[in-house]
Structure formats: C-alpha cells, structure tokens
Design a binder for these strands. Structure first.
Lengths: 194, 194
DNA sequence: CTCCAATTGTTGAACGTTCAAGTCAAGGGA
DNA sequence: TCCCTTGACTTGAACGTTCAACAATTGGAG
C-alpha cells in the first residue's frame, strides 16, 4: 500500500530533518537499551538478556518443560544459540535437558527447582528495570503509541515475528509459552534464514 | 528515594496488559532491527552497523579525519571496540591511523580515498533500508512520536547520550561530527562505566 | 526393504565485543 | 629533578554469537 502511494513522489535519497532526528534517536535507543538491560541482569543475576528470556520461557511453560526448538522460537534466537545458552544454564544447575517423553526424537529443556527459585528471585528486579527505563518515563498515551510503532517496524523487518506478536498478544491467557512458541516456529525459520 | 515516594502508590510488581504488550513489542524491535540492518550492510558492503557508523562519522568530519576518542563517542562505542574496528577497516584500506598533527599525543583516524568512494557507493542503500524498515511504515505523526519516545527512553538508560541527542540535533548544521563528538565524550565515559 | 530427504539438535571454528591489563606521553607537585 | 597521576590508546584473553558441518531420527518414494 505504501508503495503505490509513493510512485509519483519517489523516495528521496536522504532523510528529511524530522525523519533524521527520529532515526538517530531510534539508533541510540537500540544501542543503549539492550546494554542497559544486560547490565542490570548481569549484576543481579549473572546472565544476559537472551538467557533471561530462555529462563522466562521455561517458567511460563506447562511443567516448566519445553522443546528446544519451541524455546528457540520463543526467545527469538537460533537453535545453535539456544543450544550454547542452555549448555551454560545447565552448568549452573538451573536447567537440564532430557529426551521428550512423548516423542523421543525431540529434546526438552526443563527448569530445575533451583532455576525456578532463582527466577522468582530476580524477575521482580527485571520488571522494575523495564518500568524504570521505559514504562515509567512514558505517558500512558505514549505506551500505546510505542506498541503501534514497534509492531509496524517489526512487521517490516521480520514479518513472521510480527505475526506472532499479533497472535500471541490476543491469545488465551492460560496458553503458556508452548502454544505461542510452536506457532512461532515457522516464523523463526524464515526470519533467521533471511 | 523511589522507595518512600512510592509507599502509598507502590509500583506493581508486574506489567499491566497494555504495558506488557508494548514491552514485548519493543523487545522484538530491539532484537530484530539491528540484525536486519546488519544483514543489509553485510550483504551490500561487508561491514556491520558499528563499522558503518565509524565510516559515517569519518565521512562527516572535516578533512575526513577525527580523533579516536571523538569517533568512539560519535559511534556510541568503547575505545577498545573502536580500536579493533578501525584495525579491521585499516586492513581493508578504507581507513588509516596517524598521529594527530596538532597534538601528537592523540591519534587520528582518516578516511582514505578508497574509503570515501566506498561510502558514497553504499550509503544510499543503507538510507533506503532505513526508510523501508522504519520511516516508510510509519505515518509522519508516528515518526514524531517515535522521536519523543526514543529520546525519553535513552534519557532514562543513558542520560548523557540523551543530552547529546538534544544538543546535537539543534546544533549548527555545519558543525560536522567533531563538535558533537567532543561534547559527547564525557557522555560515554559515564555511560560505559555504569 | 532401501535409499533419500527433511527435521532436530549438537559441535567446533571464526568472528566480534568486553574486560582487564598494559604502554606511552603529558602535566603537576615535592 | 623525580615521581606519580591522568588521559589516550592498544593489546590479548575470555566470552558469546554465527556459521557451516555433522549426527541421529523420521517419513516417505521407489
């Protein structure tokens, strides 16, 4: 739709001043926010943001167990990345791997008791950081705008991931991580491959 | 301080549904956009986003030369990261290092002819990608909202970097990279150390 | 039944970033 | 003068991600 709109007014080669300001601010954001989150997580929990997402995915999964490939989709990372990450979490005693009981060709990651206890310990601080850095510095109106904007950009950069956002957000609240994750699977495949 | 302030309206431990949706969308954005930009830059130019920012900083600098520490501030990275990156760009023949002519205790990075030619070759594609992934999928109104939101978040996560955004964006247009970068220097120091 | 292809997951090497020294040159007392 | 701190930059090792190759298993096609 945006295409035909711009046919007779071709894309300028450079950004207009207001576009440029927004672009620069966005680049600063994507540079600064992840590392700020990493600082908090590393300090309070000794893990990085990806590892936290893995742990969070496991926490929400029924029985605290979930297949590796679903978990990779849920955490938006490649299977290889996940395999290395789970290896590290395993060494810390928070996760373990086992063959999937229903279908032995899959591997399940399971959150241990220690892992679950650890998550309930550190999650509040992470949520507080999310508030401090983002939610609390925006007006409720801006929070809504942010969601719309972010979803559009994700839609352009990774269409299937965006689809997951659409579906996951309106999904039944009791669904847990597994349902959303398996829907996500085909998303990651086309996304990471691109 | 935040403790006593919130005694009678304490921060909830979790996010409200609309806050949670915005947070999830934002996390997807910061995950997906940098890697999408890296894909384009790697494909068309063989470099990553940080290296591109380094080259861009050099392009805008007077004489296409700029001190390492100013360049690090401009590209929002540590001096060490820059040193490694410039090493790689040097090996490709796009940048060279020399002792600063006015003050020999500093080191200047200089964009070579080949480097400048290379940048004019690849910059349009990168700008086009910025349009495709962000600017063109938003309404002009949303572009404005994005700037405000991003600046607030950056303000919370890295105050001095945000200060640079404020100053840099209203700075005289002929200032070039060097002026903004030296203002930025103290910013990085307190930011990266945190 | 056999072979072929696809899916799931792991592994090791290459690459880039971070982190903790380390070098070098300038300023600033004693 | 000597020392010693400070700022600018570099270096090498540790760490995490990516990438390509690899095993293992399943589901057909012939």
């Amino acid at each position: 739709m945006s295409y035909s709109e711009h046919v007779d007014s071709p894309e300028p080669q450079w950004l207009f001043p207001d576009e440029r300001r927004a672009w620069i601010a966005l680049m600063a954001l994507v540079e600064v926010l992840p590392s700020a989150l990493d600082v908090q997580l590393k300090r309070d929990g000794g893990l990085n943001h990806f590892e936290y997402q893995v742990m969070a995915g496991l926490s929400e999964a029924p029985e605290r167990a979930i297949r590796m490939s679903d978990l990779a989709a849920f955490a938006s990372g490649s299977l290889s990345r996940l395999s290395h990450a789970v290896g590290r979490l395993e060494r810390k005693g928070w996760v373990l791997r086992r063959s999937c009981p229903t279908d032995p060709r899959y591997v399940e990651a399971v959150l241990t008791e220690a892992g679950a206890a650890f998550m309930t310990e550190i999650a509040p601080a992470h949520v507080a950081e999310a508030r401090r850095l983002v939610i609390d510095v925006l007006t409720p109106r801006q929070v809504g705008q942010l969601e719309q904007i972010a979803r559009r950009v994700v839609g352009a950069a990774a269409p299937y991931t965006a689809e997951l956002l659409d579906e996951g957000l309106s999904a039944p609240p009791d669904e847990g991580a597994a349902g959303a994750a398996s829907r996500l699977r085909r998303a990651r495949e086309s996304t990471t491959g691109a």
